[in-house]
Design a protein around this nucleic acid. Structure first.
Lengths: 339, 339
DNA sequence: TCTATATGGGACAAAAAGTGTCCCTGAGAG
DNA sequence: CTCTCAGGGACACTTTTTGTCCCATATAGA
């Protein structure tokens, strides 16, 4: 297949461009449907007229449907999107990126979606979609899934849909509150996922700022204790990665901690842990739940993070503990390799 | 690969057209090089200007080279032509044709090249090329190859080139003269092939018209006898198929025979044997050499014949004895199926 | 129920790309 | 030496693509 694409490129160099354009339109449509022509045009950086020509074409091919309320992907369009994915990965060199990044970061498997979350917000949704797809591949009935917080994870939650795969799955938050807004807290996201998946979930109701003593005694409460045990038994752990400074700013981090984070040159954050360039933990938020050194070999850790700006943070975290699966985007992948 | 092509067709329906056009140009170039723009244009039924645009493009892609003496295929162009062949077969549905024809005619394997020899004379050369390619696949060192006559076989001979594959091969004519012009006689063709292949050959010097007695006694001559034994040991037998009437006209066939051929409604001819629609032998030219019932299971019989006009003849012959391999063209293949 | 907004589609001029047609110069074969 | 083929330049003409408005209408929210 790769060979065929190479020859095609020789014989018709713009084939990639055109096919790519149309594929992107469909891809975006899948995420945003139903959506209008103009909105679509600005999102994809195409002039309205061009987009229109393409849309008319795609309609004639039966790949999309046009309602007065917007455009939608037809079943065939969905099938195409799915069927062409491997080919497009090869065509756009994403497969190469995946292999290289996997090697550089020492991660088992890497998935790269095209685009850069920093540039287009919809790329994050693609990350989410890819993540859900992978989760479905990994999961077995009855598995416990621990979910961390963050905007990326929120995007993942958004893409979850009901399926047989989730049968008897239980979603649990990975850790207690970290001072984030409620929409992107571990708790919220895990319950959103569970609801969308029509699966069970458990909440971890713990106030954010607690003294060490209170936290310790809280952990011994029967309900909490049981949940903590559940979290430790999680088969799949899903989390994002943040840039250290941004995360510290966003959260109600104490001044002392912020100072420490800056002094020790932290670049990445995950699960409330802050890492420096070498992957050393320089600070950890105090909350109950999953502790990084609880992670064992039997668990599948899925990291999902994209955007070229997060490249350094991703590299840093992977030095501490390479995940089993990294889901990222083209922007981040390229930035990771160019260092 | 087939799936990819299907999707591509959906996303870009004219891809086939353009790729096909360029592929054909290269294909034709391979046969005719070095050749000028105008000659090429008329042969391919393209306007000069269009061909020119394409040629400029192909030059920029490094697929062809342009000399003052004409255009030539570059090494990369050759590689492309070879590399894309399977894909083009699928793209143009030739693979389907092959399977269908194989089933209808009960032939082990069918190769279909695109085009119709009746329309474009260069398609016959493609038949030749395909045949040589297949011969190289089949042959083992030291094999004896029996070659029949005819214009198609002459085209095959034209495409033979030296190769390790022909090591110790011996080319022999399948049968004695059949009243054809010397260029397309079995003898000539077999020696041409051998020369081009840098292999050995043996000639069968027998006058065309002989009485039965002379023929019999001639067959007992030591030299001839040995050669006849050689012919019967041939591992590979290559022959064409003709339309009965045309063949009878072309050869110095006796009036009686011509009448018989017409009366018994012969449609096809091969090896000097004439067949009716049902595959029954209605007449045989009298000459020494390979007799059809000499053919055994261990031999590989390669039939090469193209052009929609020959469809009936091909079908007829295959009813008598399905070959191991049929090499034909799109025109004939379609005509065979449409009866 | 009404209104605001976003939808698809029509229309048309301007720009760009593609195409038909000639003509020129030069290399190579007879 | 001449004739025929080669590639390439030039240019008008046609077709396609693209940018820009505008309009009727379905839908959602007030």
């Amino acid at each position: 297949m790769r060979e065929l694409l190479e020859w095609q490129k020789k014989l018709q160099p713009d084939i990639l461009e055109i096919m790519g354009k149309r594929y992107r339109i469909l891809q975006y449509l899948r995420l945003m449907q139903p959506v209008g022509r103009r909105t679509l045009a600005v999102s994809l950086d195409l002039s309205e007229r061009v987009l229109r020509t393409e849309v008319t074409f795609l309609k004639n091919q039966g790949l999309i449907m046009i309602h007065p309320s917007g455009m939608t992907l037809s079943d065939e369009g969905e099938a195409l999107l799915e069927g062409m994915e491997p080919a497009m990965k090869i065509a756009f060199g994403l497969e190469d990126l995946e292999k290289q990044v996997a090697e550089v970061l020492n991660v088992e498997k890497v998935i790269v979606v095209s685009g850069d979350s920093d540039e287009y917000s919809w790329v994050k949704k693609e990350l989410g979609r890819a993540c859900v797809q992978q989760m479905k591949k990994q999961i077995a009935p009855g598995d416990i899934i621990a979910v961390a917080g963050g905007t990326t994870l929120a995007a993942v939650a958004d893409m979850v849909s009901p399926s047989e795969k989730w049968k008897d799955a239980v979603f649990v938050p990975a850790r207690g509150g970290l001072g984030e807004k409620v929409e992107i807290q571990s708790n919220t996201i895990s319950s959103t996922m569970a609801t969308k998946a029509r699966a069970a979930y458990r909440l971890l109701h713990v106030p954010d700022q607690l003294s060490n003593e209170t936290r310790t005694s809280l952990s011994l409460e029967p309900g909490i204790k049981e949940l903590l045990a559940l979290i430790r038994k999680a088969k799949i752990v899903i989390h994002g990665i943040g840039e250290a400074e941004i995360m510290a700013d966003r959260r109600e981090t104490s001044d002392g901690a912020v100072q420490q984070i800056k002094e020790k040159a932290a670049v990445g954050e995950a699960f409330g842990y802050y890492f420096d360039r070498e992957g050393h933990i320089v600070h950890k938020e105090r909350t109950i739940g999953l502790q990084l050194n609880d992670l064992n070999e039997a668990q599948t850790v899925i990291t999902v993070a994209g955007g070229s700006s997060k490249a350094e943070a991703i590299s840093a975290y992977m030095k501490y503990r390479p995940s089993n699966l990294l889901i990222t985007d083209e922007g981040a992948a390229k930035a990771i390799l160019n260092r």
